[in-house]
């Protein structure tokens, strides 16, 4: 009976992993096909769909826009989030528990509701510029990711160590730089990477804020999927998958994957 339980749970794990990876892995062979349709098994080998990425109208522009947006939103979040986390951990903030729950609350909100609320509010104040609307909204999306990890690593840090370093002859800035920074860096890095991915992949908030000339990559991809579905999408997807794997490997090197788990 115990044996049976082990077999069943092991089987479930294998099934789960296969099931989770299937839709991601099928994209890769399809991107190298010669045929203009997605057929399985793919026929021949060509890189034509990768070349086509550059020729499809607006695709490269959308990649650039999404990258700029995600980068800027992440940097702003790091600034706001770190300041707030320092205040919550080291300072006296009235209702600190409520404040930190509030700072994390955008994570729990359905993205679509946030997008609609933003659209309505921005119309109300008369801001119609898509880039600024997107940036304002994406900071809301990325801030909780930064808050969560920076807050966690700051509250685990023993500030007595900074005092110890000063007793041993370090000046205050040097003590912060050589003791505090290396300790909270993993939280910083993983928070920033997750924030970047969350912004780069966001669809439900962006869909309300883009305009004809300013489209983020997920919006552009979905448009393209509806208009002319061909393996170019598989080629873009393969690049995105390679990018995420690279980011995850980098994270693993820096902090260890297990500490990254968002849930």
């Amino acid at each position: 009976m115990e044996r049976l339980g082990r077999w069943l749970s092991g089987g479930a794990l294998a099934l789960v992993i296969l099931f989770l990876l299937l839709p991601i892995l099928v994209v890769i062979p399809v991107s190298f096909t010669e045929a203009p349709v997605f057929r399985f098994p793919p026929e021949g080998f060509s890189l034509q769909w990768y070349e086509k990425i550059g020729r499809v109208d607006g695709l490269l522009g959308a990649i650039g826009l999404s990258a700029r947006l995600a980068l800027l939103a992440t940097v702003i979040s790091l600034l706001l989030g770190t300041l707030c986390a320092i205040a919550l951990v080291r300072g006296v903030v009235p209702g600190a528990a409520a404040v930190s729950a509030f700072m994390l609350s955008p994570l729990m909100l359905p993205g679509l509701v946030l997008g609609i609320a933003m659209l309505q509010a921005l119309r109300e104040v008369g801001l119609r510029d898509a880039w600024w609307s997107l940036l304002l909204a994406h900071v809301v999306i990325t801030l909780p990711f930064v808050m969560r990890t920076v807050l966690a690593s700051l509250s685990l840090f023993d500030f007595g160590m900074v005092d110890a370093a000063r007793t041993l002859g370090c000046s205050y800035p040097v003590a912060l730089w050589r003791v505090l920074v290396p300790n909270i860096l993993p939280g910083f890095v993983s928070g920033a990477l997750f924030a970047f991915i969350a912004s780069f992949d966001n669809y439900p908030v962006s869909m309300f804020l883009v305009d004809v000339r300013t489209k983020t990559l997920p919006i552009q991809l979905l448009n393209y999927l509806e208009i002319s579905p061909d393996p170019t999408l598989a080629a873009v997807s393969t690049c995105l998958i390679a990018l995420t794997v690279a980011i995850l490997l980098l994270c693993d090197r820096l902090v260890g994957l297990r500490r990254l788990a968002p849930v």
């Binding site: 839709p23 994209v27 780069f200 997920p218 991809l221 979905l222 999927l225 997807s237 995105l240």
Partner: peptide, 10 residues
């Protein structure tokens, strides 16, 4: 961490 659009497409 893989985009939901990529997954739905796959």
């Amino acid at each position: 961490t893989v985009s939901i659009i990529v997954k739905s497409f796959g």
